[in-house]
């Protein structure tokens, strides 16, 4: 699948920009450090939106298309921000055979977003992650630091509602 480009408006802070500038200043003389700068930028912002990629391109003196090409090639880079509540559905073997796919599908339908995307209100994001080592609880998902195990698709609605109503 092509990487989805988030339509959520960029909400970068001056503090984040300052941090990114420091990273760029450190590496701007060496274009081979481009990926390193992109990794650090993703650490700062959580994802690599247009505004951030443009800052990197200008700062490293490389074309924006080069940055974008790299950002869409490697799965570690994301073009979508993480929501306030980041849902990871485990797709390890045990979870998968126990129906993690259906769990994921239900969440995806409910929120109207696909893998590695974020809802427009910025509240939820979902990822299909690799085995988190809690196979005994399969199928498992995490929402931020909370773990939910032995799930059925019907559990999804109640769990999501709990977070949707949180401030």
């Amino acid at each position: 699948m092509q990487k989805k480009i988030s339509k959520i408006p960029f909400k970068g802070t001056a503090e984040q920009e300052q941090k990114l500038k420091e990273v760029i200043d450190k590496y701007c003389d060496d274009q081979s450090r481009l990926m390193m700068v992109m990794q650090e930028a993703q650490d700062i912002y959580g994802y690599l939106p247009f505004e951030v990629q443009l800052m990197i391109a200008d700062g490293m003196n490389v074309p924006l298309e080069k940055v974008y090409g790299i950002a869409t090639f490697y799965s570690q880079f994301s073009l979508s921000p993480k929501g306030d509540y980041d849902i990871s559905v485990c797709m390890g073997t045990a979870c998968y055979v126990k129906g993690a796919g259906e769990i994921f599908e239900r969440i995806s339908q409910k929120l109207g977003i696909g893998a590695d995307e974020c809802t427009e209100d910025g509240k939820f994001s979902i990822t299909a992650c690799r085995c988190i080592g809690a196979c005994g609880l399969a199928p498992v998902m995490t929402i931020n630091d909370d773990v939910y195990g032995r799930l059925t698709p019907d559990d999804v609605d109640d769990i999501l509602a709990k977070y949707a109503n949180k401030a």
Binding site: Q2, I5, Q53, L64, E65, K66, Y68, G69, T72, F73
Partner: peptide, 25 residues
């Protein structure tokens, strides 16, 4: 395009999804 120093097109995404496109499509 790169030789022309313009470089507004390049290979985006990977595998079967690889396509020639512009930044942020």
């Amino acid at each position: 395009c790169e030789k022309q120093y313009v470089h507004v097109i390049g290979a985006n995404d990977r595998g079967i999804d690889t396509h020639i496109g512009t930044p942020f499509e």
